[in-house]
Computed example of a mutant assay.
Amino acid sequence: MINKTLWALLFSLCAFTAQAQNKDFVEPVSVNSDNFDGSVKEKKLIYIGNVVVKQGSLLIKADRLEVDSSAGQGKEVFIAFGSPAVYSQLLDGDKPIQAMANEIKYDVASRVLTLTGKAEINQSGSLVKSEKIQYDLEKQKLNAESGKDTERVTTIFTPEKK
């Protein structure tokens, strides 16, 4: 019974397939790590050490990954930690996106990435650096905030090559 419940939790990682328009989200999720700890009762999973998450072109590399599925299927929250944690994916239209931060939080229900701590996001040759960046994957909207008075949001635009 416990094995079946753990598998159900692992398959809940795929719950956002119905909302996604990207073909990646119909692919199975593969999580590899050095160690795994999970609570069936609390619906929380923790992966530690050389964590690699793959789903189609989606790739997350981290030192630690926490998955909270207590809110129900399709409402999972993934939090990757690293120095830095790294996220990459090909979005619709083959637009590659790369992001890195000390913490990368992905809220499945809202499809929002929140990057915290030395956050960087790079898409289509443009780069944004900040202490905190929120990126709505569906609407492709970005919000960046500085952390301290001396830190600023930096954006670098790369001109289109002809």
Rank of each mutant, 00 (worst) to 15 (best):
T150K: 11
K4Q: 11
K75A: 07
S12E: 12
L45K: 01
I97M: 14
K105Q: 14
V51P: 01
L58M: 10
M1Y: 03
K23L: 09
V108Q: 15
E151Y: 05
L127K: 15
N143R: 07
A80S: 14
Y135T: 03
K162T: 12
I46L: 04
S39P: 01
K141A: 03
V29F: 06
Q73C: 02
D149Q: 10
K129L: 13
A20K: 09
T155M: 15
W7T: 08
R111N: 13
F81T: 10
S146L: 01
Y135W: 05
E42F: 00
S110H: 04
I60A: 02
S126E: 13
V128K: 04
K95R: 15
E120F: 04
K4A: 14
P96T: 11
A20F: 02
G93P: 13
T116R: 09
G72T: 03
D37T: 10
A18W: 05
L127Q: 15
K95V: 11
V86E: 10
S39L: 02
Q98D: 12
V67F: 08
L10M: 06
Q21P: 02
V26C: 13
S88D: 09
V29E: 06
S110P: 05
D92C: 04
Q19P: 04
S30V: 12
Y87N: 07
P28Q: 05
S126A: 14
G147K: 06
K54Q: 04
A80F: 04
L65P: 01
G125E: 13
D34S: 02
A20E: 10
E76H: 04
K23T: 11
D24C: 09
Q55C: 07
A18F: 08
V31M: 02
L45S: 01
T155R: 11
V112T: 10
V53L: 10
N22G: 11
E151C: 07
K4C: 06
K43W: 00
A71L: 07
S30N: 13
L13A: 12
S39V: 00
V128Y: 08
D92K: 11
T155S: 15
F25Q: 10
S124V: 11
V128D: 06
K118E: 09
A15Y: 07
K95W: 00
L115G: 09
L90G: 09
K141G: 01
L91Y: 05
E103D: 08
E145T: 03
A71W: 00
V112I: 13
E131C: 11
Y135E: 05
I133L: 10
K44I: 06
